[in-house]
Amino acid sequence: MESQKVDMFLMANAKYFESHMIPYIHEQLLKMDDSKFMMLQTVNLKDPIMMLIVSLFGGHLGIDRFILGETGLGIAKLLTCGGLGIWTIVDFFLIMGHTKEVNMQKLQMVLY
């Protein structure tokens, strides 16, 4: 893919990924075929800040996990009072990193 397009994509979407993954993503996007650019634009990436807010307000009911597509864990969190309240608090700190991980997995599905 053209370097200009890659830079444009990264400028708009860098916040969705871990900073140490950016050079790797840059490298992979440069190798990627141009025809996949449209698919790349349509990947449904989740905003880590939004997920933190969802986790703060709806984490007790597992809504954060449901939004990330982890239905099983969402149900587990919902039925156990947010993992006895402890899992909810742990997720306040972990959910942003986890969202970036999930975004990376989604991107990798387009890349390969």
């Binding site: 009911l61 919902l78 039925l79 156990t80 009072c81 947010g82 402890i86």
Partner: peptide
Amino acid sequence: DLCLFRKLTGLPCPSCGT
């Protein structure tokens, strides 16, 4: 009592009583 929801809102959550 570990239910955060009940402590914050005063109302039980869907799984309170389990």
